[in-house]
Design a protein around this nucleic acid. Structure first.
Lengths: 157, 157
DNA sequence: GGAAAATTGAGTATCTTTCGCATCTTGCTC
DNA sequence: GAGCAAGATGCGAAAGATACTCAATTTTCC
């Protein structure tokens, strides 16, 4: 069965100790904004957040962290391999914790629901196609846009 | 059909007759900017152009067409099915004439070269994955980023 | 506890794309 | 062809996302 769903890990409550550890291991100084942002990524319940989402969450928690810092920190986390940045259609990028395993996405164009999946057959075909064209793959992005099974989404517009 | 043209003698590329036809069939009024832009998409040599690329090409041809119009026209062409808009990484979207057949892209991260490909196995897997997750596919986007075989690109940075 | 180096916040800048609106064209009619 | 309403254009301004500048603050290391 080459195709399997990847479920979001059920994250435990924020653990400053743990988050500081991860940040340190990533080679970054442990600062309040970084710990806080990582904690939100781990515990807010959603796996895919835009910088704006993170910022709003911070505001709702009375945190005094600027939007510029959110962008900076997310970019640093990306460079450090802690998070992955995705560019779905619709303007802004979304960030998700790096699960370590590559996967692609199914996005509902109605409700925005996101399902992750990995498929070895597709991966293999991609590798072959790249090779046939003399390309050395660096990364790839596969996003399937559609309508999910929610009744509200199925409704014809 | 002696096709003596009454129009001015200064239209270097394209066939105004033909482009006007396409625009009309798309349900749009035939205007100079639209004809000119379609002509550029058809004759400029590159298959993938950003709005900015089109605008620069217009400027180089001494055409007095505003950037806002370029965006508007491209968006209308997209709605009309004449062109497809792609969102590769790196900010701006690129437009290509709608060839009628779906295909995906290989993009060289060094030189920007773009290779199109279609793979029925991948398509089929995507359909299956969407179905397994209760999604009704609307469209999808698969882009493989890598380094092409050009010697300049192969060079390690 | 202190100094050097890194980080932050706030505002500004930039890039891409869209909007508002007065003016000009197109397509259709007579 | 001339007249007209609907639609299109140009330009500047606006918007949305993200990056940069820089002074002030915080972290790390000793």
């Amino acid at each position: 069965m080459p195709s399997r769903a990847i479920e979001s890990p059920t994250v435990p409550d924020g653990d400053i100790q743990l988050e500081s550890q991860q940040i340190k291991q990533a080679g970054l100084k442990v600062t309040a904004p970084r710990v806080k942002i990582l904690s939100i990524l781990e515990n807010c319940g959603k796996r895919h957040l835009s910088a704006e989402d993170v910022y709003k969450e911070l505001l709702s928690q009375q945190e005094e962290i600027g939007l510029a810092t959110v962008y900076r920190v997310l970019t640093q986390f990306e460079s450090a391999g802690l998070v992955c940045r995705r560019h779905f259609e619709g303007g802004q990028s979304v960030f998700e914790l790096n699960s370590g395993e590559h996967h692609d996405h199914l996005v509902c164009v109605k409700c925005g629901k996101i399902v992750e999946f990995a498929d070895s057959i597709i991966e293999e075909r991609q590798a072959r196609i790249a090779a046939e064209n003399g390309f050395e793959i660096e990364e790839h992005s596969l996003v399937i846009y559609g309508v999910c099974s929610e009744s509200g989404c199925q409704k014809k517009a």
